[in-house]
Design a protein around this nucleic acid. Sequence first.
DNA 1: CAGATATGACAAC
DNA 2: TTGTCCTATCTGG
Length: 268
Amino acid sequence: MPEGHTVHRLAARHHELLGGDVVNAASPQGRFSAGAARMSGSKLVSAEAYGKHLLHHYDLGLTLHVHLGLYGKFSDGTVPAPPPIGELRLRLFNDRHWIDLRGPSACELLDASQVQALLDRLGVDPLRADADPKLAYARLRHRAAPLGALLLDQSIIAGAGLIFVMEVLYRAGLHPSTPGTALTPKGWKRIWGDLVSLMAQAVLSGRIDTVRPKHMPDAMGRPPRVDRHGGEVYVYRRAGQPCLVCRTPIARGELNGRNTYWCPACQS
DNA sequence: CAGATATGACAAC
DNA sequence: TTGTCCTATCTGG
């Protein structure tokens, strides 16, 4: 379930479970055996998220970098850890807790310069206090590509995924194919503010909710509908279902191989 | 139980 | 623009 809010939650969780402790590492699946052996026995100094990237900083001077991709997943618990089942890329544990990682698109050890190179190619993360929205706007406003693609570009905005982008465009009344050049300062301010508040809320709740109270489906006389992703949304994966505001069926399309969703009436 | 699907990011063409 | 990778879960038969 990896959009930026998930990764920020994981960073906090991992620091809570293993931070300040010597960590044991193993790769039962074998694909990260060398890395696990190298980092095992070193102390986890801190864990942080940048966009969708998770970084564990260890006192041996190396950083564990994990990107969950589309399928990656973490789980954790208190010892004893269950026997490793399936494709378990990485297991971390101390005396009290274990953390398992499956299916990541990246799981690697980086030195300081490699970490810097990673951060250098990432855009502005709405969940980070040091985020500079002006920088992202400067990268958006002169590009003719559709906003549905630009807002997903991690070198512009780091951490927003398909759900947040589709929902934020809906709330701004902008069609996903609106070119970046058409984004006014006012429109950008609205989108950025939404990203910051919606993503921050998602960090707290662990799910993505974007529907304003007055638009909640049960307020319209229908049962609330919670998507499999766990939250309540206007358009994401609601193709064919009525818009929660105007009842027009939600449309679905494709952009760069990703699904896009919008209300043909509310977004132009 | 096979097939489709998924909140992502690449490289190769 | 297409293909590829990573894994679990949901769907329909």
